[in-house]
């Protein structure tokens, strides 16, 4: 794909734990939206089972019938053998491309000779890593969230034309860290093993403020996210020029389907005027600054 082609719109895996009906309603809207690709699956916590792997695969069939490219996304932090079973089920689904979010998934896919896409936490920071994984079957990768635009361009130039497709996380709360500890359970004074799945009450995560009342982070089970919403959409032309073949929107329950449509309209008109930065958005990583910084775009 050349840099002048407009990027495709990808809906990343949902990071939150929503009730089943909300999840299905969300993806019904995504199915009717301008999104090109949809990543499905539980990537944060294996205990979240409103949808099980077979349910995600069934949902994938519906979205594929609606004309979407479907990718199944695997658990990011894999600790127990039972969790590996879930990863294996997704990897060996037999129908859809898989996003490997951990080297364990890469290994399972490689052993089967299956192509894969590499998630943002495979830590590909240079062209040598990119090409090594390409040679093992990686046909697409998601840039590490903390890399900047100039580094992406340099990395892709060094990789040459036979590189995998590039996806850039362009909108949503940034997944920043993964832990053995569940912070939502800790907040509710519950042991992780008896957490009561309380994260289902937080469809957009639970805000963490400094003691000066500044929104700093977000807790979402074992995951810690940015407090601010990372938003590079007004700079979509710059992302495309830097080599982004796909722009990832990370699901937010009320917002993402409309945002996908707004982005598609802006790209069709070759404009950015309809895409705006909110006062609480951040964009620092793209400019090589602190991720939380708000730097005007485009």
């Amino acid at each position: 794909m050349t840099d002048t082609t407009k990027p495709r719109i990808a809906i990343g895996p949902c990071q939150y734990f929503w009730p089943r009906a909300h999840t299905l309603a969300f993806y019904e809207r995504i199915g009717a939206s301008a999104a090109d690709s949809v990543y499905l699956g539980e990537t944060v916590c294996a205990k979240r089972r409103e949808l099980r792997p077979d349910d995600w695969i069934a949902l994938g069939r519906e979205l594929a019938a609606a004309g979407k490219e479907v990718v199944l996304s695997t658990l990011t932090l894999v600790e127990a053998r039972s969790e590996m079973g879930m990863v294996r089920r997704m990897c060996l689904n037999g129908e859809f491309l898989v996003e490997a979010n951990d080297m364990a998934a890469v290994q399972i896919l490689r052993e089967q000779g299956l192509p894969f896409t590499g998630g943002p936490f495979l830590n590909i920071y240079n062209s040598h890593a990119l090409l090594a994984l390409r040679d093992l079957g990686m046909r697409r990768w998601v840039m590490p969230l903390e890399l900047d635009g100039a580094t992406l361009r340099a990395l892709l130039d060094a990789a040459g034309p036979q590189r995998p497709e590039t996806e850039v996380f362009a909108h949503g709360r940034l997944p920043l860290a993964w832990s053995a500890r569940c912070f939502t359970a800790r907040h509710h004074d519950l042991p992780k093993d008896q957490c009561g799945l309380r994260c289902i009450d937080d469809p957009d995560g639970r805000p963490v403020n400094t003691r000066e009342g500044e929104r700093f982070l977000t807790i979402n089970g074992i995951q810690t996210q940015s407090g601010r919403v990372h938003n590079l959409l007004p700079a979509w032309q710059k992302l495309a020029a830097a080599g982004a073949d796909l722009l990832r929107l990370s699901p937010r329950i009320g917002e993402t389907p409309d945002l996908a449509d707004a982005l598609a309209r802006a790209m069709a008109d070759d404009t950015t005027t309809t895409l705006t930065q909110d006062g609480d958005d951040c964009s620092g990583y793209w400019h090589g600054a602190a991720g939380m910084d708000r730097i005007p775009l485009p």
Binding site: E146, S179, G291
Partner: peptide, 21 residues
């Protein structure tokens, strides 16, 4: 480290510098 090492961007989110980079 309470976060999975190599997969923690908290520091670069706040400062631009992380263990990875």
């Amino acid at each position: 480290c309470i976060m999975a090492e190599g997969r923690c961007l908290l520091s670069s989110y706040a400062t631009g510098e992380s263990p990875n980079t």
